[in-house]
Each structure stands twice: as C-alpha cells, then as structure tokens.
Simulated scan of single mutants.
Amino acid sequence: MELQQRLSEQVGELLLARQQVLVTAESCTGGGVAAAVTDIAGSSAWFDRAFVTYSNEAKQEMIGVRAETLAEHGAVSEPVVIEMAQGALAHSNGTIAVSISGIAGPGGGSEEKPVGMVCFAWADKQGWQQVETQFFAGDRQTVRQLAVQHALAGVANHLSVS
C-alpha cells in the first residue's frame, strides 16, 4: 500500500504542476485507482471522476464502448480499453484518462486470456494514447493491487516526460 500511496501522491503533484485532470474507467479494479487517488488530500483539484464499468452494458452505456468492439475482441482486450479511455475523456472534465480491464481471478481465465491478464490504456485530450497488456501473478487481491499501481505508474511516467 505504501507504494500505491507514493504513486498517488506523485500523480497528484504532476497533474497539478501541468494543470491536468485525471479521469478513470475501471473494470477489474472496481474503482481501485479512484480510491487510491482520492486517499490523497486535495485530490479534488486534479481528479474529476471514475467510471466503474464492470459489465459490458456499463462500458457501452456510460462511456460509449461499441458493442462491435466488445463482440469482436472481448471486454479484456486492448481495443476495448482504448475505447474506454477515449470514452472517459469524452464523458468527463478530465484531460488525461487511464482505463483498465482484466481477469483478476480466481476463475474466468482461459488459455488465450489467463487469470492475471490486464489491459491498460492511457489517453489525453491532445491525442496521445498508449495501450499495453500485462500479466500479473497472484491471487485476486494481488492482481487488482498490481493493476492499480501499474495504472498510476503509467500516468506518472507520461506526465514526467511530457
């Protein structure tokens, strides 16, 4: 948890310094990124909102993920998290977004998409986007915690170099 708090504080400092506002679109983490950043006093200055879009219907209704994308690639896929990040930006006052969809386990995995597979996308209002898939080992809680940390680190890394 200490790493998560340090990452959240770093993200907040970077967002404030660059006059940016974070928005999240989360599935497997269930709002974990939002919880981590709102643990930081003053986060209302740099955090707008979180979309916890656990179901496919929520992804479509709340942030505009296309049914065709879900049908073709599945909820845990890079094309879906890209649409989640873009949708979060479009439906918020955020200027930078992170989205997450994965298989935290213990069930739900397959040979193609094993437990611990988590897809991430980051995007901003200037058109930058990045997408990647990570494979985390551990139980459900560990996978979710590692996903939150990776999401925050991605935001921090982008803001540090931009």
Rank of each mutant, 00 (worst) to 15 (best):
E57Q: 11
V161P: 01
I100M: 08
Q129A: 11
K113F: 11
E72Y: 10
W46M: 05
G64Y: 06
R49G: 05
V80Y: 01
L22R: 04
Q86F: 01
S44A: 14
A90D: 11
M62T: 03
I82M: 09
A71N: 00
T53D: 03
A34T: 03
A34G: 14
C28N: 04
T95E: 13
V98K: 02
G31L: 12
T53C: 06
A58F: 00
Q4E: 15
G107L: 00
Q60Y: 00
I40G: 14
A151R: 14
I96W: 04
Q10W: 08
Q86C: 02
D124M: 08
N93E: 15
S162W: 11
I103G: 03
S162Q: 15
T133L: 06
T24G: 04
D124S: 09
Q4M: 12
L7R: 09
V11E: 09
V21N: 08
C28T: 02
F47D: 10
Q126F: 15
Q145A: 08
T133F: 09
R140A: 13
G32R: 14
A97F: 09
T69E: 06
L146Q: 02
E2C: 13
V52D: 09
I63K: 02
P79K: 07
L22N: 03
Q141Y: 05
Q149L: 01
W128C: 15
H73S: 08
I100P: 01
F135L: 10
Q20M: 13
A151E: 04
L15A: 09
E78C: 13
P79I: 04
Q10N: 14
L16G: 02
V148T: 07
Q134T: 01
N93H: 14
R49F: 03
S99D: 07
R6W: 14
T24D: 05
S162F: 13
N157R: 14
Q130P: 05
I63V: 10
Q60V: 02
V81T: 06
F51G: 03
Y54S: 05
A121G: 10
V143S: 02
A90T: 00
G154R: 14
Q126T: 12
F120L: 07
A88Y: 01
